[in-house]
C-alpha cells in the first residue's frame, strides 16, 4: 500500500500556494476556487503536495489496474428562477452534455443534494428526466431543499425505498466502498448540519466490515468538515463520522451545499466540494451572506460545473477533476 494520492483540479490563478515548497500546511489547505481555466495536477505524497501540468499523469494511470470512474454533480436547485440563474434547466442540461462528452465515460453519477429548490414532485421529475439522457445510474443524497415539508418522506419514496433511517446507505463498486450520508434532517437551532446518533452508529458498524486498504468515498450534502460555521457550512457531528474513517488508507469526502469547489487534504482524507449546476454562492465570509450570487450572464457557466472522479485500484489513487460548464 502507498499513501500516494493524486488530486486534479482546474484552476484559474486562485491557488495561492507554492505546491513545490516543502513548507506546505500538512493539516491540509489545498483550497481551490476551481472555477475555470487551465488545469493542474496535484500529487500528494506523504502529505506534501506537488503540482504538475494537467495531462499524461492521469491519463496514463487510467490504463492500469481496475478502473473506477464516476461524476459528482450537485445543487441543481430545480425550480429556482431568480436573477442568479433564470434557467436552471438549461444549465443542468449543459452539465449532462458535459458528462456525456467525457472521453472516459463514467460508471455512474453521484448527486450530492439540493436536487430541487422547493421539494415538489414536478421539480424532482424534471431533474430525473434530464439525468435520464446520461444513461447512468444516479445515487442521491438529499439536501435541505429536498426535504422541506415532509422530513424527506417523498425523497426516500423516490430514491431509497430500502435505505436506512432518514435515507443513508452504502454500496461497493469496483473495489471501492461508497457511503451516502444524510446531514440535513433534525437540525438543531443554532447548529450546523447533523448526522445524529443513529446514523453514526450505523456508519461505525457499516465500516467495520470494510478492509482498511479499501478506498472509501463518503458523500453527503453539507460539508462534513467545517468550512465556515458562521454560514452553517459544516456538520456538528461530522468529526465523529470522520473518526471512524481514520483507519482507512484512502478516504474521499464529497459534498455540495456551498456552490463552489473547495478542497482540503488531511492525512489520508481528501475533502472536496463540488460546484452547483444552478447558481454560485460567495466565498466564505465574502459578501453579506450565503445566498445566491448574481454574476454577469456571460460569466455564469464559468462558475457552475461538475466533478469527475477517477480511481485506479492497483495504485490506490483518486483523481478529482473539476470542470466548469463554460
Amino acid at each position: 500500500m502507498t499513501d500516494h494520492k493524486k488530486f486534479v483540479t482546474t484552476a484559474s490563478g486562485v491557488i495561492q500556494h507554492d505546491h513545490n515548497h516543502d513548507g506546505i500546511d500538512r493539516r491540509g489547505f489545498l483550497k481551490c476556487m476551481a472555477w475555470a481555466g487551465t488545469g493542474a495536477v496535484f500529487v500528494a505524497e506523504a502529505g506534501v503536495l506537488k503540482s504538475t501540468a494537467l495531462g499524461a499523469e492521469v491519463g496514463s494511470s487510467r490504463k492500469h489496474g481496475n478502473r473506477l470512474s464516476f461524476v459528482q454533480i450537485s445543487d441543481s436547485h430545480m425550480g429556482f428562477n431568480k436573477p442568479a440563474n433564470p434557467d436552471v434547466v438549461g444549465t443542468l442540461k449543459a452539465a449532462v452534455d458535459k458528462i456525456n462528452a467525457l472521453p472516459d465515460s463514467p460508471d455512474f453519477i453521484l448527486h450530492t443534494g439540493d436536487i430541487t429548490h422547493l421539494s415538489t414532485p414536478e421539480q424532482f421529475d424534471t431533474v430525473d428526466q434530464i439525468l435520464k439522457s446520461t444513461n447512468k445510474e444516479v445515487f442521491f443524497v438529499p439536501g435541505e431543499h429536498d426535504v422541506l415539508n415532509d422530513d424527506g418522506a417523498m425523497f426516500r419514496e423516490r430514491y431509497f425505498k430500502n435505505s436506512k433511517g432518514s435515507g443513508w446507505y452504502s454500496f461497493d463498486k469496483n473495489g471501492a466502498h461508497f457511503v451516502g450520508l444524510v446531514n440535513v434532517m433534525n437540525l438543531k437551532a443554532g447548529g450546523l448540519g447533523n448526522l445524529g446518533h443513529e446514523q453514526l452508529e450505523w456508519l461505525e458498524d457499516d465500516l467495520r466490515a470494510v478492509k482498511h486498504s479499501t478506498p472509501v468515498v463518503v458523500f453527503a450534502h453539507i460539508p462534513l468538515w467545517t468550512v465556515y460555521p458562521q454560514w452553517g457550512w459544516g456538520t456538528d457531528d461530522g468529526a465523529q463520522a470522520l473518526s471512524y474513517l481514520k483507519k482507512f488508507g484512502s478516504v474521499t469526502v464529497l459534498n455540495g451545499h456551498i456552490h463552489q469547489t473547495m478542497q482540503k487534504v488531511e492525512g489520508n482524507v481528501t475533502f472536496h466540494t463540488a460546484c452547483s449546476t444552478a447558481f454560485p454562492q460567495p466565498a466564505p465570509g465574502k459578501g453579506e451572506g450565503p445566498g445566491p450570487m448574481k454574476v454577469p450572464a456571460d460569466q455564469l457557466r464559468k462558475v457552475l460545473g461538475i466533478t469527475d472522479v477517477n480511481y485506479v485500484q492497483r495504485r490506490h489513487a483518486l483523481a478529482l477533476v473539476d470542470s466548469s460548464l463554460a
Partner: peptide, 12 residues
C-alpha cells in the same frame, strides 16, 4: 418563544 429556520439552523 424561541424559533429558528429548520433548514438553516444558524438563523434564530
Amino acid at each position: 418563544y424561541n424559533y429558528f429556520c429548520s433548514i438553516h439552523p444558524k438563523m434564530t
